[in-house]
Design a protein around this nucleic acid. Structure first.
Lengths: 129, 129
DNA sequence: ATTTGACCTTCCCTTCAGGGGAAGGTTTAT
DNA sequence: ATAAACCTTCCCCTGAAGGGAAGGTCAAAT
């Protein structure tokens, strides 16, 4: 298969496929005589794995490790779990940050008239401190 | 005041102060004879406003508008409120995405032994679909 | 047999918010 | 006079994704 077909099936953009190859996240594709990248079903499989991992918010660094663990049939599951747990911690941190922002913002927006007048508790809050 | 002092007071890095100036978010600083940027209390005030806005997660694009509205004493508060509401919507979207990732990840991690054995529901999930 | 259009290649630039560090000029304190 | 601390501009890097140029290849229609 050429890169375009694989991109369609795996739902990973050709641009990204080339980049993932460059970053060593997926194996280097074989080439046709004229230099076109050639892919197999297995490559599609890997790309779907990468896509699913991205959807769960893993960084490409994590995904590189996850792919490598996935392909190593002797991996200890502890290593996979560790990566996932660290990721969970980071997501929880982000979650807390966003929740805190939202709580402030919601409060401010509730108290802003939002009309033609210039008085604005949102700007007042940003101004203070 | 020189840039370093202002950076310390406003808690905005000198590097960032220069960039904000370049991006037109804060007014161009005056210069000393030798070319050093010169700041006033008012500049510190603006920088604190910018910093506070960043802490609430606003984009620099939004902040540029917020600063401009803040300095315009005839602004309609509706414009400020609109920016804040749009930002809230985006944060809520992010929040939902993260919550959804976390719910999947927590479930997977719970079911992963995390020992020396290779069996791993996390990898299984990433592999499927 | 040629042309056209769709596909592929590499290369560089852009985004966003932030930072590192080089090379060189200025100020201040010793 | 010199050293340290400060300032200037300039370019590069991060991470994940993508835009688009310039040029090579392939297949189908004319």
């Amino acid at each position: 298969m050429n890169i375009g077909e694989v991109a369609q099936i795996s739902e990973v953009n050709s641009k990204m496929i080339r980049r993932y190859e460059e970053q060593g996240i997926i194996p280097k594709a074989g080439r046709s005589l004229s230099g076109y990248r050639q892919y197999t079903e297995n490559d599609v499989h890997i790309l779907k794995f990468v896509k699913k991992s991205r959807e769960l918010g893993f960084s490409m660094k994590d995904i590189k490790q996850l792919v490598s663990l996935w392909r190593n049939k002797n991996r200890p599951s502890s290593q996979v779990k560790k990566i996932a747990q660290k990721h969970i911690e980071e997501l929880e941190k982000k979650l807390n940050e966003i929740e805190s922002m939202l709580s402030t913002l919601n409060h401010l927006v509730k108290n802003c008239h939002g009309d033609h007048r210039p008085d604005c508790p949102i700007l007042d809050e940003l101004e203070c401190h």
